[in-house]
Write a protein that binds this DNA or RNA. Sequence first.
DNA 1: TATCTGACTGCAT
DNA 2: CATGCAGCCAGAT
Length: 112
Amino acid sequence: MAKDNYQRIWQTVLLIPNGKVASYGQIADLAGLPGRARLVGKALGYAPAELAVPWYRVLRSDRSLAFAPSCATALQQRQLLLAEGVVLKKNRVDSSALWQPDLAELLFKLQY
DNA sequence: TATCTGACTGCAT
DNA sequence: CATGCAGCCAGAT
């Protein structure tokens, strides 16, 4: 069911550590949904506020933010990332902020 | 059931 | 390094 995929995506995004970022495609892979990067974007859009999913830690594979640089959403994303110490240069995060999860630990936490 | 959409990607230029 | 573009595919209508 669609809702199940959203749940898996939200849970995976919840595991991104403070100060780290991941790409849509990476989240899709880790969530067991390879090839569905675009679905990750939709899932974040539908994420219930009470889950407090750190949507701002997810960006494109080239490390650029997925919004027009001047729109309100992009501004908020930049602010949230900067607040966590993520280095941002021209709408791109520094590669040192990329999340490199330990797969064994992930499998344990996600409980598939 | 058929179509349309896009918070994406990889590759070519 | 930046842009363009075809391919992508589940979910929404």
